[in-house]
């Protein structure tokens, strides 16, 4: 019998049973599958089938013999079935919009799991749902054609805690290095996917842009046993920069600035991690920067309603930067 067919038959058997199903019952029901050849091989075959059923979400467990019941396998039907109640139509609709946008972006880790979860949601909501009208562009880079597959592999490695071998290309050094990495997690920042993990080559936690991975393989040995533990205190957010000035180029500098006029009410979205004070027509902020020039360039781009107020070094650098831009755009272009 085809394995897919046998597994579905097993689901039907277990869901229908009112008493524990013994190994003898199972073997008797599938004589061609589990009754030919050495019994050890048949048991191993059933163990593999059982593992697949568990992975599919069938809560199968073995119960020891009771007062009037034999030992055998049982399924908790209530734990198996997807509950009907709970999500309201508007919640389902917006969840669907989010899920299908992520899926359509073409660069989402766990895309197959997501596709299936959306089908489940379709089961609850019924057919002919309106077009969700939310579109996402992820990994918006010229060299991104291998990104979806890399993300899928990396997410599988993250969730099963298997180490990966990767060839990583740095555009700064223009070198490709081969590394073994314990993948701790994936984080998306401004459309770019980051892999954070323990790098065996550098003996520390490192962040990699997934689109700069040139080759990738997941450790295939002992797929069911994890290769590493993620340290309890580890947080992804500590290792990925959302904004350019959060790149770790130097020790943190506390930069103070003001936003006035129309920019004042936008303080929280322009500087999400800045500490803004007051709600008046001018707002003062303190922003910690580990790449000062990147912060100054950003402030410059916001126009005259954004001003740096300290420290002096930051003011001087901003002035030098603005002067350079001003001179480069004076008169006719050179060359």
């Amino acid at each position: 019998m085809d394995r897919t067919e046998r597994l579905l038959d097993l689901v039907a058997l277990f869901l229908d049973a009112d008493a524990p199903v013994s190994w003898a019952d199972i073997r008797g029901a599938f004589p061609e599958d589990y009754g030919v050849g050495p019994s050890e091989a048949n048991e191993r075959k059933f163990e593999r089938d059982k593992a697949e059923l568990l992975e599919l979400g069938l809560p199968l467990s073995f119960v020891p013999p009771g007062d009037d019941l034999p030992s055998g396998y049982v399924v908790d039907r209530e734990a198996y079935a997807l509950p009907e109640a709970g999500l309201k139509p508007d919640e389902l609709a917006v969840l669907y919009a989010a899920g299908s946008a992520a899926l359509a972006s073409g660069a989402f880790p766990g895309a197959q799991d997501l596709a299936h979860a959306l089908r489940q949601r379709g089961f609850l909501a019924g057919p002919n749902q309106p077009d969700p009208r939310v579109r996402l562009e992820l990994g918006g880079l010229a060299q991104g054609h291998e990104l979806p597959q890399r993300l899928e592999q990396l997410w599988a490695a993250v969730s099963t805690r298997k180490k990966v071998e990767l060839e990583y290309h740095s555009p700064h050094t223009r070198q490709t290095t081969r590394r073994t990495v314990d993948p701790y997690g994936l984080a998306l920042r401004r459309g770019v996917w980051n892999l954070v993990g323990h790098c065996h080559l550098r003996q520390g936690i490192r962040t990699f842009h997934v689109h700069r991975v040139r080759a990738l393989s997941v450790n295939a040995a002992k797929p069911k046993s994890p290769d590493f533990e993620v340290p309890a205190a580890f947080r992804l957010d500590d290792y990925v920069a959302t904004w350019p000035w959060q790149h770790r180029f130097h020790p943190p500098v506390e930069v103070t600035l003001t936003l006035s006029g129309a920019l004042a009410p936008l303080a929280d979205s322009l500087f999400p991690k800045g500490c803004a004070q007051g709600t008046g027509p001018t707002r003062a902020l303190t922003v910690p920067a580990t790449d000062l020039d990147a912060l100054l360039a950003y402030v410059l781009s916001l126009g005259p309603q954004a001003k740096v107020t300290g420290p002096d070094d930051a003011l001087q650098r901003l002035r030098a930067m603005a002067t350079k831009v001003h001179q480069a755009h004076q008169g006719a272009a050179r060359g």
């Binding site: 992975e55 599919l56 979400g57 069938l58 734990a79 198996y80 079935a81 997807l82 509950p83 969840l95 989010a98 899920g99 946008a101 992520a102 899926l103 989402f108 880790p109 766990g110 895309a111 799991d113 997501l114 299936h116 979860a117 959306l118 489940q120 949601r121 969730s159």
Partner: peptide
Amino acid sequence: PRLTAAEGVALAAA
């Protein structure tokens, strides 16, 4: 069947 943990995480992440 109910969603598995991996399916739930994929949906939650989306």
